[in-house]
Simulated assay, not measured.
Amino acid sequence: MDSHEIALHSVLSTDERSAIAELEATSAILQLITRLTGMRFAGIAKFTETDWIVCSAYDPIHLGIECGDTLELEITLCSELRKDPKALFIPKISEDGRYSNRPVVKRYAIESYAGAPIFLPDGRLYGALCALDSRPMLFDDPCLEGTLTLFARLIGCIFFASLSPDGN
């Protein structure tokens, strides 16, 4: 550690240092996801029984989805991950009748989607790691599904470490 890090370490509590590290880690992961997918938005969302809540977002194209935003879970593309908890890729939503009429697609002009479920180490489904774009996207990298799933697993571990003992 350099002298700046030592000084910072001494004035910040363990919880504060943990929160900063979590923020930096998730921000870096979201930027990597946009590079890997070629998409211009990446986010992490938590699921409740009825809601999709944005925990973190990387939005250089200003889609308008921000940290803290809440949507009805069933109108989101990520809700599909609750039904079938594996990575989902939709290269051209406008040509896929299962997804093209969802209000969230129209509201944010989403044309392509990539998402993976985030599981906590204890097996609970926490939410989703997703990438979105207003352009159609080719998902031709055979390693993309595995890579997205690994990042979702890492995020689950990061979030699990910061959860309170009562699981919230």
Rank of each mutant, 00 (worst) to 15 (best):
E66I: 10
M39I: 05
C55E: 14
G156A: 10
L154Y: 13
I158Y: 12
F159P: 02
L88Q: 01
G43Q: 01
D141Y: 08
A28R: 13
F139S: 02
I29P: 12
E49S: 07
F47E: 11
I33W: 07
K92I: 07
F159S: 09
S112Q: 04
R82T: 11
A161G: 05
F139D: 05
A152H: 13
W52I: 07
L125F: 04
K106F: 01
C143E: 15
K92E: 15
R124I: 00
I53S: 03
D133C: 07
I65F: 03
I90A: 02
C157S: 12
A128C: 03
S27H: 12
S79Q: 06
K106I: 15
E22W: 00
F151R: 07
G123P: 02
I65Q: 02
E24P: 06
A28G: 10
L88F: 00
L88W: 01
A45M: 04
R124T: 07
T37V: 13
E80S: 10
F159R: 14
I53A: 01
D84E: 14
L163D: 11
C55N: 06
T50N: 02
G127C: 02
R40F: 12
A152M: 14
A25P: 00
S27V: 03
A87V: 15
W52P: 05
R153C: 09
L77C: 04
G115M: 10
I29W: 09
I33N: 11
L81H: 05
E111N: 15
A131G: 10
S18V: 08
S162P: 06
D51F: 01
L63R: 12
S112M: 03
L154Q: 13
F139G: 10
I65N: 06
L73E: 06
S27N: 15
E95W: 06
S134G: 12
D69G: 04
M137F: 03
R153W: 04
W52V: 11
R82V: 05
L71Y: 13
I44C: 04
I93Y: 01
E22I: 14
R98G: 05
R135V: 11
R98A: 10
G156K: 09
T26C: 01
P121G: 07
T34V: 10
P165A: 11
I90E: 00
L36E: 11
L148S: 09
I93N: 02
E49C: 01
P85K: 02
S112V: 07
V105K: 04
I53Q: 08
N101Y: 09
P142S: 14
R102D: 00
